[in-house]
Amino acid sequence: MKTVEDAIVDSNWQLAGDLWQLVLRSKSIPKQIEPGQFVHLRLGEKSEHILRRPLSVHDVFADQNGNFEYLSLVYQVVGEGTDYLTTFSKGDTLNLIGPLGRGWQPARGINSALLVGGGVGWVPLALLAGSLTAMGVEVHCLIGARNAEYYDALAGGADFRPYALRDTQGADTEKFFEHVATDDGSAGHHGFNTDLLEGLLAKYNFDYVATCGPEPMQSKVAAAAMAREIDCDVSLERRMACGVGACLSCAVDTVDGSKRACVDGPVFKAQEVVW
């Protein structure tokens, strides 16, 4: 159920460079979020920014009483709007619409998944990594980042690893793997994460691939997965106005014609998308 809700800022801090983490307290949205969904965030009541910002949900977590009321959003400062978002602090109110969109669609009964995230595109995959791990699926995370600091911010400093292993006491943590590539070689492979793609696909027997990040990266991942006939989901970023399917700003070309990233996506089957 889509809710329009005033959420309260719990924290908003700089993870690394232009990457920030915003944690919000929201009564109804964290409970309903499925991995890959997003919230549409209004930049304050009095802002000159009249368009909301669609932000992927990175994590949800509970307070001491077990109430799932916290929502973690990791965002990159890319313009005036996201720059303004960094000025909000604990106790401030931010209005959300959510949960929105169609999330990741792994088939039931999968055994081994490859999650490929490029930069801040890793964010919507973090929750998926957690939920697949909790289901006992072998999860390989292939993360591309600018440098070691960004990699830590995306995968380590934030809640990703804690979440992935949090609700999985008893789950086999030996089924959880991280592979990393950085632009400057300060962590993992020196180069693109897609350089490691073929090696991983050849070595492991994946039955699901999910990817989010720059579209050239996603299209490479999609092509590689489709070549091996592995079920593959991609998550596409588009500018959005309404976020609920009405305005047709976020059009995505698909084999079935134009679709809306906000309600038909942001996750699409790789073979649906016309790249």
Binding site: E48, I50, R239, L248, S258
Partner: peptide, 18 residues
């Protein structure tokens, strides 16, 4: 509808090219 980007924000407004 139109190809390319379809919206952009401006101060207290937005541009659309749906």
């Amino acid at each position: 509808g139109n190809d390319g980007l379809r919206i952009a924000e401006s101060a207290n407004g937005m541009l659309n090219s749906i």
